[in-house]
């Protein structure tokens, strides 16, 4: 049963990863990528890391990939122009391909040469008895690795503030800015007047 589920998810991850680079339409590529993320989450469930699996779906599929999909959908892609640049970028592509191939060969070679003897996990690395995934991760992150965890959080915060500062144009320059307090304070008496003009005479506004 587990073996069947593993091969199902593993084949789907590899197939959708392959389709990500083979698909001609960039939107299709992103959708295949999302399928790959999703199946990777399935693999994590099989090895018993259900908390990480859910986080992978929430963060990558639910947030990152949506924004990614958006950007790709908004692009107006000209296929002819893309093909025209093919020869220019070819050498760079070949170099990247060679590096990736070398890494793959080395990785598989190292694996064939004999698995690493990792030993049995001791101390903090040992699995906590009776604790669920969430608790075990929480104890480690807010206990032993508290400092690193906080530093990572602050780095992300700084990055976020940086992005906001770069895109912020100041309130005055934004057209159509809404002042909600002013809108709420507006009453019908301020906006409308009730007059009965005499026939043949206009209304002074």
């Amino acid at each position: 049963m587990t073996a069947f589920a593993f091969y199902l998810f593993a084949i789907l991850v590899i197939a959708s990863a392959a389709m990500t680079i083979l698909a001609r339409n960039p939107v299709h590529s992103v959708l295949w990528l999302i399928l790959a993320f999703f199946n990777a989450a399935g693999l994590m469930v099989i090895i018993g890391a259900e908390f990480l699996a859910m986080l992978l779906v929430v963060v990558y599929v639910g947030a990152v990939a949506v924004l990614f999909l958006f950007v790709v959908m908004m692009l107006n892609i000209d296929f002819a122009e893309m093909r025209a640049g093919f020869m220019k970028n070819a050498p760079l592509g070949v170099v990247v391909a060679i590096i990736l191939l070398a890494e793959l060969v080395l990785g598989i070679g190292a694996y064939r040469a004999g698995k690493l003897d990792l030993g049995t996990p001791l101390g903090d690395a040992a699995p906590m008895a009776g604790a669920s995934n969430t608790e075990a991760l929480g104890v480690l992150m807010y206990g032993k690795y508290l400092f690193l965890f906080e530093v990572a959080g602050i780095i992300l915060l700084v990055a976020m503030i940086g992005a906001i500062v770069l895109t912020h144009r100041g309130q005055r320059s934004t057209r159509g800015h809404q002042n909600i307090a002013k809108q709420n304070a507006r009453r019908p008496e301020d906006a409308t007047i009730n007059v009965k003009p005499e026939i043949g005479k206009g209304v002074e506004l």
């Binding site: 908390f51 859910m54 779906v57 929430v58 949506v66 969430t134």
Partner: peptide, 12 residues
């Protein structure tokens, strides 16, 4: 164990 997270993941 992660029921609520599952709901969050699916609704996303």
């Amino acid at each position: 164990n992660v029921g609520l997270l599952y709901i969050l993941a699916i609704s996303s």
